[in-house]
Nucleic acid binder design. Structure first.
Lengths: 189, 189
DNA sequence: CTCTTACACTAGCGCTTGCTTGGTTACTCA
DNA sequence: TGAGTAACCAAGCAAGCGCTAGTGTAAGAG
């Protein structure tokens, strides 16, 4: 909807607080203070607290979709490279927009039905990219198993990284992606 | 601590509500009503709301540890069987005690420091079982990769199942476990 | 036949919550 | 210069929150 630079910055700050404290424990007064305004002024930018949450999640998911599409465009066409590309792109978004994605993954349930319906479409579009890539890998005999289960397992493993991965450590997100792909592709070393 | 059957039943009900509503959104009045008492009476059983959360998580983690240990005892000794056993045991607990485990996975941050320290030990004991099994599988050349990353990926994939698995569907938890093991073990079909 | 213990109740205190209201300031553009 | 508008503030309301205090009651122990 509204995408003023001010609102974008406020959304970014909100994401950070939502991750630190959780959506429910984050009060409008905390949000306002972090933004350098008073709690009442917050409602000039957002209709209510719900809308802030929706803005955070929309921003994150939108970026994920954009990054994945661009990565696929400039990726080699063979199934293995495309699989690696998607895994890398997934982790890239996850950690450049970490706050927004942690909120999207763990505070989704706090959205009202209307926002959920709207944002589901965005998320589905993203997951469709994965399904394509995994289907191609299955057809090429690169990996084996049930297409539904494989994609769930892979996305689960990747999403769970936000719970333990430390960007200050020795491994880059690309390292993680490569390791995961190597783990599910037989006989590659 | 206290483990009266009454308290256990109250804990079970609390777990259900925490999953439905989230810990923060669950009020002591909702908890009391679900338990068939008034909100004041709740504090005869639990010192405060925090303690209910700790009780839920302790119960769940304790069961997980018990089930995994028993499963390993009666498992064949070869690394592949032990890997499958752990995966099956993990999903078995996850879905027989689903509510408690969802709370443990997604409301952990709401625990105060004291409870966190106490429960960390239980969780570490459980994860140690995994590390053993995965180390053995690596040494046997059954799987490849970094031991740290492999265990994180596997646990991530398994834990994420609570977000999409439907027990009413055609697949059993054992099916899921077997598929995951097949996915990461090369050349097994 | 008391004493104790476990469990429940009523009533409400003190505080925080999301959000509203009515008004002020600073900037833009005709 | 003056109108319009976006951004903000001070003040506070109504509702809901976790939790406490004080009391009642029934069952088992001595």
């Amino acid at each position: 909807m509204n995408a003023s630079p001010r609102r974008k910055e406020l959304t970014r700050l909100a994401a950070q607080l939502f991750v630190q404290e959780g959506f429910d424990k984050t009060t409008v007064r905390m949000l306002a203070q972090e933004m350098g305004i008073k709690s009442g002024s917050l409602f000039h930018h957002f209709k209510d607290k719900q809308e802030i949450l929706a803005a955070v999640i929309e921003e994150g998911t939108h970026n994920a979709l954009r990054i994945a599409r661009r990565a696929l465009e400039s990726s080699p066409a063979d199934p293995e490279a495309r699989l690696r590309t998607m895994a890398r792109a997934h982790l890239e978004t996850l950690f450049t927009d970490r706050n927004a994605h942690v909120v999207a993954l763990f505070e989704w349930r706090r959205l009202d039905d209307e926002a959920k319906a709207h944002l589901s479409h965005l998320r589905d579009a993203y997951e469709a990219l994965w399904v394509d890539v995994i289907d191609a890998a299955l057809e090429a005999g690169l990996i084996h198993g049930d297409r539904f289960l494989v994609s769930r397992f892979v996305l689960g493993a990747l999403n769970w990284t936000v719970r333990w991965y430390d960007p200050a450590g020795p491994r880059t997100p690309d390292d993680l992606a490569d390791e995961l792909v190597a783990m599910i592709i037989p006989m590659k070393r």
